[in-house]
Write a protein that binds this DNA or RNA. Sequence first.
DNA 1: AGCTTATGACAACAGCATTGACGTGTGAAG
DNA 2: CTTCACACGTCAATGCTGTTGTCATAAGCT
Lengths: 246, 246
Amino acid sequence: MTERAADRAADLAADRVVPEAARRRRRPTKQGTVLSQQVIVDTALRLVGQHGAQAFSVRRLGAALGADPSAIYRYFHSTDDLLLAVADELIGLGLHGWQPTGDWRADLREVGLRIHAHSLAHPQAAVLAVYRTTGRANEIRAIETMLGILRDAGFPDPDAVSLYHAFIDQALGFAVLDSAALALPAPAQHADLAVWDTAYRTLSPDTHPHIAATTHLLAADMRRSAYPLALDLLLTAVAARLPAPE
Amino acid sequence: MTERAADRAADLAADRVVPEAARRRRRPTKQGTVLSQQVIVDTALRLVGQHGAQAFSVRRLGAALGADPSAIYRYFHSTDDLLLAVADELIGLGLHGWQPTGDWRADLREVGLRIHAHSLAHPQAAVLAVYRTTGRANEIRAIETMLGILRDAGFPDPDAVSLYHAFIDQALGFAVLDSAALALPAPAQHADLAVWDTAYRTLSPDTHPHIAATTHLLAADMRRSAYPLALDLLLTAVAARLPAPE
DNA sequence: AGCTTATGACAACAGCATTGACGTGTGAAG
DNA sequence: CTTCACACGTCAATGCTGTTGTCATAAGCT
């Protein structure tokens, strides 16, 4: 988990790892699995989805694959390198099959909600990897698409870039936050929610008038993600910045 | 790291841990330190700040304290329980010494920037704990303050609550995202940034016209946090929702 | 002064990521 | 069709990790 970066920078360095494209021999494991980057990433996503982020370890991944854990290091430099591949896979899943409609605001809204929803569908993986810059294929495609939406809408380049940045980081920020809550072990998750019904419910109106006046609203609202509202607020303000056409 | 929640729910259960208020005996460790929840939290923050999030482990914390690692379990049920205390400490640091001015928009802006800045000042700790609901003293104070700002500004209760939710989660989301980037080991952090100058710089205008047209802007913009812009966009949209007074 | 017990220390356990050495079966070369 | 190199799966070992059960000792009450 420590030198992933150097590894990525020097992908061709003398290493255990052979680039996926250059692989010729594929020897099945004792248990018969034929390994590949794709198989490992898929298995990692499945493992984490079924048994939670705490269940993610190289050893367990090896077991799930039907291979010795150390075999994974023939395909990824480190667990962190593997995580980057998982992150990129998530981005790809989020954009799969989607096409822009030409309505920039609706398109951005849809993309934002898709990214958010797909992270929540794999919260454990999202929490581990969403904040990374992967530089891999799916990430590049996503950026090209979103930048295109803003530029085609008529935003000048500097605005398009900074608004894209605000938009995507808002989406990823909420994705991480909401995923993290979902990724907690079940009892912890329940306890975090229960706080709104216990600790906050018992505060005196004298010392905490604003909380006391809104406990019911708070307890209800905190169960939902605030992202849809935050996204709409952002898009509203962005629309106000759109230069008049021509 | 597994049953923290149950522990919190049953704070009084038959446990190793004595509530801080009920402590009578304070026996110094072999190396002379006198332990307390506060000392442990402070040391954890310092440790993580100096040596990075990867340096955080119960054993290292024990060493930094001058105590056996297992002594920590006399003060916290688990590492996760300790993390909640650290999170609350961060919130407290962020609000320390601040007073609302009465201008709701300026106040929210200030609080948002403070939360974000304080997380970045302890990125390693922020990443571990910012998304938790602690239910502890500082968190309660922060919520009361922010709800008050919105309600006093004239937002009806349901709006005040949902707008508070969107505001705080956006602040925390960006805090986690930007902290995570800062918390990466130095070489990894550098590599993630370098991607903008390498991978994205070499894309052809034919296949990726939008990225190609803005690479310089992208590389520059991605070095900064998008939070100030996102915050201003959010506040602009919120202001538009403020009911006319009286 | 004496007693209880809170609390720090110690040792042990199971699980973790990672690495180096090893041998086997694959796929290419002739 | 045989040979051969070496890619890649396996094994074993290292030094981490969080957590717990047991013990002894000193703090503070009576």
